[in-house]
Design a protein around this nucleic acid. Structure first.
Lengths: 342, 342
DNA sequence: GACTTGTTTGTTATCGATAACATAGTTTCG
DNA sequence: CGAAACTATGTTATCGATAACAAACAAGTC
């Protein structure tokens, strides 16, 4: 079983043709007679031939995969973005090389450096904050670069994202117009989660613009802020600032944790306190009550990115950088119903 | 910006040495004088040199990455397995090439075929069920193969997993000894989710062995069975078999869906009905009440797999196939407290 | 001091595919 | 009918690194 690997040469010899003909038989649009192609492909399969794309990529100086880095594997939203991207790309026979950074831009730097060694056709990163070396590597890579899930002030290449800061405005507006005054924010302080930090900043801006007190900021703990941290933060909030009448969480996961903490303590949501999240995760629609949230359309980010790449990869030279702005949507849930509605 | 790529030759010329010396400077253990190495590495960085691992892999006929396929990106358990694997592998400078199959063995076949073209050092797949061609590809690949998350009857190579069927026994035992008689099972019928199907089979076996009726089987809908499907299945269960006093769900996600459906209908858990899940997902510990579940130790699967690979990759020939059996643990939650305990 | 051993560097061949060019046979069409 | 255009295939050079071998020099040994 650990014999010498079968190469194109072996297939060529078996078929009585040149290696070039075998190579052509594997490329759909190349000129090989149908009969010969069928014979070659069958022989290749019988011999257990597996093409060495290492060699192919080296010689042709191009590859059929896109490198993608996301902060965390275990996040439904990033997973959705990658899935959608993948679905569009695979129609053109392209694959995704996926890596995760653990919300750490140093880790991202290592990952990007390693990915670029593999000569991807393009590279997609999450967010707009990178180390200097990462920026330099990306800028000099000579391939299309896409930054996603954010709208960086000084983009490296293409951008497909939305403003995390502005995405908080509909939530604050909704809570305020339904009579909430003392609104808190949980999370957004974790090092590395720049999108969470942006949302917190946006919250403060929206609150301040309305003349409301924007100082009810509860730390969410270590990244990734998840359900347990949300519950713990809610406990802190309830004991430190018991007159709070609404809370926005950095994500639906922490919002659910906050909700469950309320359930545990017998605090009525939304009657005693309203809770909102971000991300339109599945839990927001299944929790009882359902959680008011913002849908940033993760799949749309992925498919737009893929479509953008397919456009630019067709061209020979790198075309002008493009910028797709995705519009997040407000999703009303039961967790913020105004007291009058109950 | 789209200039010719910088190659080792350029670095060599700039440093006034041969390409071989540059190559050696990049390999930590090679014999190059410290001064010269430092000079070369600095020059390389200044020139923006990025090593072409395509060429390196081709020449040396080996690579530094492990191909891994999982059913779904958006699953905390598989993500944990991959994270743990990655953490162990990266200590040896190895990377992971990750792909997902959407619970489809046809998709898996395509993915495996593409991965093998890249000449990974080893390949890790989830589960034990594959197409004939996948099995053949894996068996002939000439690299270590690991099947995880299962204990296949006829393994291809190494195995790191547990029996999904037997993992149900502690749940059934617990429910039975705490006085539950009419126990239902939600899910495990989705095409593609063989581990879910195994658990359902194990449920039937455990029930039958106790002389209990094992016919309360509720379909969970399309894979991946998630929270919403769990809620819908619970609705079906409550209307079709209203005397049911306990339900085991194929995963904690569907169990939470079921729990939320009960909350919506004002049905008391565990008083009116007990609910158990599988997977020890975060939600199981945060939901109110917490959900009784089985922890299959996803991270342990990942780290054991990685350690196994590091052992075999050190050797020149493929050593004997190994089999690590992970023992899942029972985790008691509030969702199955016996009526007496309340 | 001559010989052995080890360190640092260079030269040449090569991994497995494809680009570029070449050629023989075949079809098209004025 | 014959030149132009196309189809099917082969030949040669090459992508960018590293293995294998070789050589120059330094250090250690008796």
């Amino acid at each position: 079983m650990t014999q010498r690997t079968v190469t194109m040469k072996d297939v060529a010899r078996a078929a009585g043709v040149s290696v070039m003909t075998v190579s052509r038989a594997f490329k759909a649009d190349s000129s090989v007679s149908a009969a010969k192609r069928a014979q070659i492909l069958k022989l290749a399969e019988d011999l257990g031939y597996v093409m060495d794309s290492t060699a192919a990529n080296l010689r042709s100086q191009r590859s059929d995969f896109v490198a993608v880095t996301i902060p965390s594997l275990n996040n439904a939203n990033f997973a959705d973005t990658v899935s959608a991207m993948s679905e569009v790309l695979e129609k053109s026979g392209m694959q995704i090389l996926l890596g995760y950074t653990n919300y750490d831009i140093q880790q991202e730097e290592r990952l990007v450096a390693q990915f670029l060694q593999r000569k991807p056709a393009a590279i997609v990163v999450t967010g707009g904050l990178h180390t200097d070396r990462t920026r330099k590597l990306l800028a000099n890579a000579g391939i299309p670069v896409v930054q996603t899930w954010d709208l960086p002030a000084d983009p490296i290449g293409h951008v497909v994202g939305f403003s995390n800061a502005l995405s908080m405005e509909p939530l604050v507006a909704h809570l305020h117009t339904t009579g909430r005054q003392r609104i808190a924010f949980i999370g957004g302080d974790a090092t590395g989660d720049t999108r969470g930090a942006e949302r917190r900043k946006g919250f403060i801006q929206s609150m301040t613009a309305r003349g409301l007190d924007a100082n009810r900021l509860i730390p969410g703990g270590q990244v990734p802020i998840s359900m347990k941290e949300g519950a713990a933060a809610m406990a802190t909030l309830l004991s430190d600032l018991p007159d709070t009448d609404a809370v926005i969480c950095v994500s639906d996961l922490s919002a659910f944790g906050a909700l469950s903490e309320c359930a545990r303590r017998g605090i009525a949501v939304p009657d005693d306190i309203a809770i909102a999240g971000f991300g339109a995760y599945e839990i927001a629609g299944v929790a009882h009550p359902t959680i008011t949230t913002i849908n940033p359309h993760p799949r749309r980010i992925g498919s737009r990115t893929a479509e953008l790449l397919l456009m630019t990869l067709g061209k020979k030279a790198i075309v002008d950088t493009m910028r797709f702005e995705i519009t997040p949507d407000f999703v009303l849930g039961g967790s913020t119903a105004s007291r009058d509605d109950i």
